[in-house]
Simulated scan of single mutants.
Amino acid sequence: MVIRQLQITVEWQSIEWLDLAACRDSDAATQQACRRCPVRAPCLAAAIAIDDPAQWRGGVTRDERIVLWEQLETAFQNLRDLEFTHLDRLVDGRSAG
């Protein structure tokens, strides 16, 4: 939700870390390649941000990335709702407690 709201896109060919990816010269990433890859974290972040359809990215399967995304959205919504509750209390003149 956060990334989608900001309309972030990733241009894969202009990402500096991509040259270091273990799967750079292969047809597709594999679990074994991801295990030895030095850029797992930025790869995973980019894959989540653009909803990459590849099976393996950042050492995580597509299904696992979907779960991670859903958890991120839930956390964002909970924090947003908490902030709205706090603002409502301030507007109503009540203590934020």
Results as ranks from 00 to 15, higher is better:
Ser95Pro: 00
Phe76Trp: 07
Ile3Thr: 08
Glu70Lys: 09
Glu70Cys: 02
Trp56Tyr: 09
Leu6Thr: 08
Ser95Phe: 04
Ala47Gly: 04
Thr9Asp: 15
Arg36Thr: 14
Pro38Ile: 07
Thr74Ile: 02
Gln13Ile: 08
Val2Ala: 15
Leu72Ile: 10
Glu83Ile: 09
Cys34Tyr: 00
Arg40Lys: 15
Arg24Cys: 08
Trp56Leu: 14
Ala49Met: 03
Cys43Glu: 04
Arg89Val: 02
Trp17Phe: 15
Ile66Ser: 13
Asp27Thr: 10
Asp88Trp: 05
Leu6Ser: 10
Leu72Thr: 06
Ala28Lys: 06
Ile8Phe: 13
Cys37Arg: 03
His86Asn: 01
Trp17Cys: 05
Leu79Thr: 04
Leu72Val: 05
Val67Cys: 02
Ser26Cys: 05
Pro53Val: 12
Leu6Met: 15
Ala47His: 02
Ile48His: 03
Leu79Tyr: 01
Ala21Arg: 01
Arg65Lys: 03
Cys23Gly: 09
Arg80Val: 10
Arg36Gln: 14
Glu16Lys: 15
Asp19Gln: 12
Leu18Asp: 08
Gly93Tyr: 04
Ile50Met: 08
Glu11Tyr: 01
Ile8Lys: 13
Ile66Thr: 13
Gln13Gly: 15
Ala75Tyr: 05
Arg24Leu: 10
Phe76Asn: 09
Thr85Ala: 09
Leu18Trp: 11
Ser26Ala: 11
Phe76Lys: 01
Ala29Leu: 01
Asp63Gln: 11
Val39Phe: 02
Thr85Trp: 06
His86Phe: 13
